[in-house]
Design a protein around this nucleic acid. Sequence first.
DNA 1: CCTACCGATCGGTAGG
DNA 2: CCTACCGATCGGTAGG
Lengths: 196, 196
Amino acid sequence: MIEAGARRREIDEVASELFHANGYAATSVRDIARALDIQGASLYAHVASKEDLLWSIVDRTATAFEVAVEQALVETTTDDPVERLAAIVEAHVEVVTADPERASVFVTEWRHLSPERRAVIGARRDAYERRLRDLIADGLAVGAFAAVDPAIGATFILTALNGIATWYRPDGRLSADRIADHYVELALRSLSEDHR
Amino acid sequence: MIEAGARRREIDEVASELFHANGYAATSVRDIARALDIQGASLYAHVASKEDLLWSIVDRTATAFEVAVEQALVETTTDDPVERLAAIVEAHVEVVTADPERASVFVTEWRHLSPERRAVIGARRDAYERRLRDLIADGLAVGAFAAVDPAIGATFILTALNGIATWYRPDGRLSADRIADHYVELALRSLSEDHR
DNA sequence: CCTACCGATCGGTAGG
DNA sequence: CCTACCGATCGGTAGG
């Protein structure tokens, strides 16, 4: 017995690719159907609306980030802010590189959700960013980081990390692991003391 | 006599706002016309196509970045890579904060240009990024920066800088100048030696 | 998952 | 800058 929902996951994957490549608004329901070799109207046997498709991608990706960072912090037994920040950055990069299409749709297309759903995702993104911001503030308080505005530091790092979704290719020059290493380095240094 | 092209610039400004807020594909010609209090078809007395509107925004913004960085480097008489990098970062942030709508349209909507125009912009972006990459490589060679992959370092910094366009508000907590100062700090430190 | 179809809206043109 | 209009395409529904 083929597991239920397999086709639905296939649809999500195709939609992620197209939304990533052309954007949500410029991708028609028929574009997605064509990539699946079915008729446009047939897609509605699986999904209630085009927006539901975007929502399932965005929602799942938001959860992937939350779970990965949660897990990474649980596994980081020390309370050294430097190591905890490294764990967050590494986890975030891993989620991005594991599925750059989904990640880039999450980062760039969520404004096309309904106002209600946008509010939900906005709150989750805020909470996610707050965690990073608080960690930076903690590190600053114990002298682990240089004087920096925690909000600016968190935004600087997060936008750089999310940028990976726009240029990463699995067959590129650098492996996902190497990229993660480099980005941990860059992020930690950006918050470090004495640079001249 | 009112200067020629004033109306055209007004159109560009309205289009920037709407493309920034809703994306190019989700913005109709009639949306733009409505914001100008004219009929949709009347817009074609001023522009040949919707894509031409996007092109003029993208082209002008690309030029703004190129000119600003060129100028900043000319004014930086020293060849100290640290100071030259600071000058580039500051100039880039200034262009972004001077017109975040245009900057964000430039960064995120250029994929909706025709293949020919996309190729032109792609080449200009590559050249722009290469300048930063080469500067990092130079600084690395003379020991001004920590060991880092120049391409990764340049991308890390540039994506963080471009991210400003997505969150910056002129009436926000931090002035454009303060943001530029912080970002220069963060960018320079990310390439600095010894962070533990 | 298909055929047949819906009203709405799209970018754009003709001709003032 | 307007009115009137074009063919194409949009997301989605009905009824198998």
